[in-house]
Design a protein around this nucleic acid. Structure first.
Lengths: 216, 216
DNA sequence: GTCTATAGGGAGATAGAC
DNA sequence: GTCTATCTCCCTATAGAC
């Protein structure tokens, strides 16, 4: 699909805006800086966007929406019988994929969210709640199926998961660990924990037995 | 300990700065706004701090240092024999305590870190690495004692923990859940996971077969 | 220590040429 | 569609009175 000239430079402006907002924050990003990055002059931006507020709104919405739809699509592709573990791992993978594809937007979203004018923030908050609800559903459904501890604190678990996921955008870089690896290990921590299920049997002098017994 | 007049208004300026940086970001916060919040005039701030950069540096350092020393102190108060679980729960509790005491600084730190001039950011990065190292040590020590799964991905666990902890400052408010509750449940998720250790034994109507096949 | 006044530089946004 | 030129406003920081 070929883009018209207008749509093409509009996208250039949007990409540039995401990158600058990400690095310099909302107020710290000037229309001139965005224009430079997008290879045109400041005045020309106003042909595509009425104001700086309209630009940041677009960036914020894209950032969160991309993650939401990536995760939703991946979940819907799963069979009915998928377990909570399957769903968590799948959702984490989709979350990371979205970040890689549009990390500038996602990072911008996370970094400037607390700084934009209130009206803009409120609009975007609904989308964030939507994303939280997706995770809440994954957890409560699996809990209802008896997959989790009866007394597991699902709300807290969700907050931890979302916090950890929000943070991935700060450290996950393509080229290192694969998405699949991260998603698997991430899920393992949340689902199984890191504790040795056989209890502490170690004693500094003889960790041989330990290694053997743990190899089951 | 009574503070001299100078020290008192210096602290007022600092507190005001933390609050404004938190809400409006680095560039979005004006010296006038800080002055208003601190009940003096913009010009007077320069008697206490040479520049806006010096102010943000002070706020960033306080924000991260308070968390570091709170956690370090709490860990040192533990007996030698404390397990990884003890240490994690203690560290989480100390982290949350610090946030409650100086949440404005902690939030400011988290929110503006990505936006300050590079020189300032680099200086603060060392402190952040220090904090990461504290957690890494908790995990690797406990792992060496055989408390964790042999193949547990400690680096990822650390990133998970730090991400989740960084996020607590966005949702944890005094008056709701107690710090002790959050710390306990947080630790439970990381250490034990949320999975039902007895396998899936529940059936909604009759997903028995499904449960059996999953019980391996 | 805190004030007022202001220098000097950029900011967002608009108008009109091309 | 994009440019240049410019309006108006507000920023950081300084100087000197009190």
């Amino acid at each position: 699909m070929k883009l018209a000239k207008s749509a093409k430079s509009q996208k250039r402006v949007l990409d540039a805006a995401a990158k600058m907002f990400r690095d310099y924050g909302y107020a710290g990003t000037t229309m001139r800086a965005i224009a430079d990055e997008a290879d045109l002059k400041a005045g020309s931006i106003y042909y595509h966007y009425k104001s700086k507020d309209e630009l940041i709104t677009a960036v914020l919405d894209i950032g969160i929406n991309a993650v939401i739809s990536s995760v939703e699509d991946a979940l819907q592709a799963l069979p009915e019988t998928a377990t909570g573990r399957d769903r968590i791992e799948t959702a984490v993978r989709a979350h990371l994929s979205a970040i890689i594809k549009i990390g500038d937007y996602t990072l911008a979203t996370r970094r400037v969210f607390g700084q934009v004018p209130e009206a803009i923030r409120l609009k975007n908050t609904k989308l964030r709640d939507t994303y939280g609800a997706i995770w809440q559903k994954i957890l409560t459904d699996a809990h209802a199926r008896g997959e989790f501890k009866t007394d597991a604190n699902l709300t807290l678990a969700r907050l931890f998961i979302l916090g950890a996921l929000n943070w991935t955008v700060e450290w996950y870089k393509p080229g290192g660990r694969t998405i699949d690896d991260v998603a698997r290990d991430f899920t393992a921590v949340v689902i199984d924990g890191i504790a040795n299920p056989y209890g502490v049997i170690h004693s500094a002098a003889d960790d041989n037995q330990q290694a053997q017994s743990r190899a089951n």
